[in-house]
């Protein structure tokens, strides 16, 4: 396995950072807010790069020019009010330039009015339970069998042979494209956290408390995430899969699942 991943490492190095499975950056995601989050992330990143160029640049110049081996006589200055005022005031301005767009996004994120669908998510050690508020659908969603079989120590199964190792569930959350989905998140035991990077949603599931958040996916597809709050031994084994489908497909899905919803609930 080591050889295999070393090999793939070399391969990807050649292929360059463009390679699809060698993600270097935050995904842009499939919601308006995930794109905004991504933009914020990139904006702050570029500010940091800019500041870094100036600071590290000055430092590097100094490291090469102002060394004793070049016979430099040390200067004796030890303060400069002008410089100090500038490098206190300028960062404040830059910070404001970052904070304002961030605040705008936060305000949008808070606005959960007019949802099309509400789903109650209850976290358990170590699986998720989804209940659609307006449909008669409720089910548990846990790690898929392929991963369950491969995960134990010395299972003899190479994770590279398992599709979506540790990121596949038996029953995904299905939602329609374009609909505003309100999530109500709580927990039955310890604190967990529900995260899907492509939706830019991460919210803690806290016992005794109901948390609210929402997303509106603008593309169909399968989006994967994981629990992100340490919740015990199988914390690494409670993935999240959200399938965004066309509205008709969603209706069809509701149709079939409403019928066996009872059965699923009873079998738990």
């Amino acid at each position: 396995m080591i050889r295999k991943s070393l090999f793939s490492l070399l391969g990807t190095l050649w292929a360059g950072a463009a390679s699809a499975d060698w993600a270097l950056n935050m995904p842009r995601g499939v919601t308006e807010l995930s794109a905004e989050t991504y933009e914020l992330h990139m904006m702050v990143f570029w500010w940091c790069v800019g500041i870094g160029v100036v600071v590290f640049g000055a430092m590097i110049i100094s490291l090469f020019m102002h060394r004793k081996s070049k016979g430099v006589e040390p200067a004796t200055f030890s303060h400069s009010t002008t410089a100090e005022v500038i490098w206190t005031a300028l960062p404040v301005v830059i910070l404001l330039a970052m904070a304002l767009p961030a605040a705008e996004t936060m305000i949008k994120l808070e606005d959960s009015r007019d949802p099309d669908i509400s789903v109650v998510i209850t976290a358990y050690q170590w699986k998720w339970h989804y209940k659609y508020q307006d449909e008669d659908i409720a089910f548990y969603s846990s790690l898929d069998r392929g991963s369950v079989e491969a995960r134990p120590k010395n299972s003899g199964i190479d994770p590279f042979d398992v599709e979506n190792f540790l990121l596949e569930v038996d029953r995904p959350l299905v939602v329609p494209k374009g609909a505003k989905v309100r999530l109500l998140i709580t927990s039955s035991d310890v604190v967990h956290s529900w995260w899907v990077p492509d939706l830019a949603i991460k919210k803690d599931a806290v016992p005794g408390i109901i948390n609210e958040t929402w997303f509106r996916a603008e593309q169909t597809g399968t989006f994967r995430g994981q629990c992100t709050e340490l919740c015990g031994k199988d914390h690494g084994y409670m993935p999240i899969v959200v399938e965004v489908v066309e509205p008709d497909a969603y209706l069809a899905w509701v149709e079939t699942h409403q019928q066996d919803g009872e059965r699923v609930a009873a079998s738990q």
Partner: peptide, 24 residues
């Protein structure tokens, strides 16, 4: 990069797409 690509902290095992950076 691992974090941006979606790897949570405090997990004992991870999906194969995170393999390269973890090895490094």
């Amino acid at each position: 990069f691992l974090g941006l690509a979606g790897m949570p902290r405090r997990i004992p095992d991870y999906s194969t797409q995170f393999a390269d950076f973890n090895l490094i």
